[in-house]
Amino acid sequence: MAMQVKKTLLRRALEYKPILKSEKLNVWYGRVHALKDVDVIIPSKRITAIMGPSGCGKSTLLKAFNRLLEVEGARVEGKVYFHDVDIYSDSVDPYTIRRKIGMVFQKPIPLPMSIYDNVAYGLRVNGVKDKRLLDEVVRENLEKVGLWDEVKDRLRDSAFNLSGGQQQRLCIARALAVEPEVILLDEPTSSLDPASTKRIEELLKRLSGDYTIVIVTHNVHQAMRLAERVVFIFEGRIVEQGDAEEIFKNPRSILTKAYIKGDFS
């Protein structure tokens, strides 16, 4: 009983100490109103899953977090706080934000260069030239994602020679190499086989002690396995967000209930 109370208190505390928070966030692609008045809270050093039917705005929300939306020419209104800074205010440099908030995409996207250069890329564009430091960072991050032993003898090979699962882990290592605080993952396992998926899920669990992880997924079971917090979006609006266990056990909205039962996809 005491345990239970303690756990709930801890959760409460987490909710009040968000690392990312949006207020009245609205996004338009031309005339398409993709996000509507979104208020969302992402707790620090936990895994948050974003769920909802196809086209509801999940990827859009992720890209709002690292200002990748402006590259696509979307119009953004409202506020997104990272710690306590509004990342859309004029004084904020989008490059710094994107370094602090890393992103991994649905399809693994190795850049057209070697395995080594992929991991070193983020540091290099931030001005790091020291070879020893780069070697060290590449090794450390490839070890973190469990890829080091598989690729240590062919670091100079093209990254395209890796399998799909290996490529995705490489992309995670690449994101980790610039020492982000948050990692956004957009359906990172949907193009992978079950074995690779399992490895990535284990990896994310391991990383969640040190990083804030936001993952978009269609897979209810994956969300149950990983997430401590879930956010449900329907047609650009948040319908429910909160503690994962609670919501999966006892969803308040009919839409969420139907989604969990598998009526949407």
């Binding site: 690292n66 990748l68 590259v71 490059y95 710094t96 994107r98 370094r99 890393g102 992103m103 995409f105 399809k107 996207i109 850049l111 057209p112 260069m113 890329y121 983020g122 290099r124 564009v125 931030n126 992309c171 690449r174 994101a175 610039v178």
Partner: peptide, 25 residues
């Protein structure tokens, strides 16, 4: 287009992305 996003998401600037990723590709 994905190459550009991948590079920008690591904090690279537009010109860095062009020079280091797009032009080599």
């Amino acid at each position: 287009r994905e190459y550009r996003y991948a590079s920008l998401a690591l904090g690279a600037s537009k010109w860095q992305t062009v020079r280091r990723v797009v032009l080599p590709a």
